[in-house]
């Protein structure tokens, strides 16, 4: 049983924790609160000056205009699709890195997975723009099979976002698989389970929280993205684009729109928390 804290140690602890907690409350929660508060204001339609009159017009417009619903649903489906693609790609890759490749290879492979993170975000997105274009390598590679490249659009957005956020999914899954004791796999084999049965009953339950943890990153990063879609999305617009186009013109409306991804992410986190994934974060 730990000893009761003396007054001195309590003071020191307070002094130590006060600055970060203050930062969390003021800078983080405070800015979020001000953002949501400004959603209840309006703007002068001509000068774009913010008018400080309390009303709920923005939320009313948000909920009654069909186009916002369409855009929110599109954004949500893209975020889900990116998460699913990343999970499907990360599982075999992480399994290979953690269990199949020799010890000597693990570190180089890990570095290889991480290298894309070192290059600039825009550089990567523009590289994909060139590859997915009319005369790009993707189209050229598919041409012999009589297929066309996806061109710019939602498919391209899913591909590029899945590429960008893949490391965030691989890393937690790799860590979980590496911690998986070898003897559990051996025991499963000894008990007569085949590869599929072992995967289903032993490996997947162990990595499930890791996949969910990774999905928090891929999901929330995709939900907020607006640059990739500008570069390879063709005419697609997501929530982030609408917010970006409103932010200079109608800040209160942009604030109201920003509430949508916040609500979506809070719901997602609550769902994931129920599944116990946040314990391994």
């Amino acid at each position: 049983m730990p000893a009761a804290p003396t007054p001195g140690s309590r003071l020191r602890l307070t002094a130590l924790l006060a600055p970060p907690l203050l930062w969390l409350t003021l800078a983080y929660l405070g800015s979020l609160a001000i953002l949501l508060l400004s959603a209840f204001w309006t703007t002068d339609s001509f000068t774009s000056d913010v008018v400080h009159t309390w009303n709920t017009d923005n939320f009313h417009e948000l909920l009654t205009t069909p186009v916002y619903r369409t855009i929110a649903l599109r954004t949500l489906s893209i975020a889900v699709a990116v998460t699913v693609v990343d999970a499907l790609l990360a599982l075999p890759m992480a399994f290979f890195m953690a269990r199949v490749a020799g010890r000597r290879w693990r570190r180089p492979l890990l570095v290889a997975v991480l290298t894309p993170l070192w290059a600039g975000y825009l550089v990567k997105a523009y590289a994909w723009r060139v590859m997915l274009g009319e005369n790009g390598v993707v189209g050229a590679a598919l041409a012999p099979f009589g297929l066309h490249g996806p061109g710019y659009g939602t498919t391209a957005v899913v591909i590029v976002l899945a590429y960008l956020w893949l490391p965030y999914m691989i890393l937690p899954v790799y860590a979980a698989l590496e911690r998986l004791p070898e003897r559990m796999l051996e025991a499963s084999a000894d008990l007569g389970a085949g590869a599929w049965r072992t995967l289903r009953s032993v490996v997947l339950p162990v990595v499930r929280p890791a996949v969910l943890a990774g999905s928090v990153f891929t999901f929330s990063l995709s939900l907020g993205d607006y640059l990739t879609v500008q570069i390879v999305g063709g005419k697609t617009q997501l929530l982030g684009n609408v917010i970006a186009s409103q932010v200079t013109l109608d800040l209160p409306m942009a604030a109201a729109l920003s509430a949508v991804p916040v609500v979506l992410i809070v719901c997602y986190l609550a769902a994931v928390r129920r599944a116990g994934a946040l314990d391994s974060l």
Binding site: S45, Y68, D250
Partner: peptide, 29 residues
């Protein structure tokens, strides 16, 4: 574009830039 019609019409209200912005979001779907 402002509410007061720039072409001199007095009998009607014109659409302002805020309405144009909303319309543009709708065009892009």
């Amino acid at each position: 574009p402002i509410k007061q019609c720039l072409d001199g019409r007095k009998d009607t209200d014109c659409t302002d830039y805020a309405q144009w912005t909303r319309a543009w979001t709708e065009v892009k779907g």
